[in-house]
């Protein structure tokens, strides 16, 4: 067992883990943050995407110990403390971009990073390519693409304030 200290959704935690403990296991099993999901074992579905120091990362393909000292944001930490949804969450709801909800946390976290890293704007094609690492079986992606396009101006307007 080794110790890892990391900040998750603004709160610092020191946790005992094994060498093999994955970041997603730490989040789900040690911290009870079950919003981050595991949908595959080959790093392809993206249900486990979280932000590490602001960047989208597959938490199933990351050892917990690699995240020592890191700042992690999960789906549970995206909305404001008073429950106000992040614009991306709001647009997913507005555009019916989720059905069963299982891929949704990873999809939203990927989408937030995608929009943040493209302040200049995103074409529909770029959005679709940006979702390369996230599988959804319910929606056919159509409304997810619409939601992300709609969130882009909202997020950048908010950032400019």
């Amino acid at each position: 067992m080794a110790q890892v200290t990391l900040t998750v959704n603004g709160k610092q935690h020191t946790v005992e883990v094994e060498g093999r403990t994955l970041l997603v296991e730490l989040l789900r099993e040690k911290l009870g943050l079950t919003g981050t999901h595991i949908g595959c074992d080959t790093s392809q579905c993206g249900a486990c995407v979280v932000h590490i120091d602001g960047m989208s990362v597959k938490s199933c393909t990351q050892l917990a110990l690699q995240a020592d000292g890191a700042n992690i944001l999960t789906i549970e930490g995206l909305a404001e403390a008073d429950g106000t949804l992040h614009p991306m969450q709001e647009m997913f709801r507005e555009h019916h971009a989720l059905q069963c909800g299982f891929c949704t946390p990873g999809m939203v976290m990927t989408a937030v990073d995608l929009v943040q890293s493209h302040p200049e704007g995103l074409s529909e094609k770029e959005i679709r390519e940006g979702l390369e690492g996230n599988l959804c079986r319910c929606t056919g992606y159509h409304n997810i693409v619409k939601a992300i396009a709609a969130a882009h101006p909202l997020m950048h307007a908010q950032a400019a304030e």
């Binding site: 993206g46 960047m55 990927t110 995608l114």
Partner: peptide
Amino acid sequence: IGDEAVRHR
């Protein structure tokens, strides 16, 4: 290579 999340690591 891979996808954006993979490219971050």
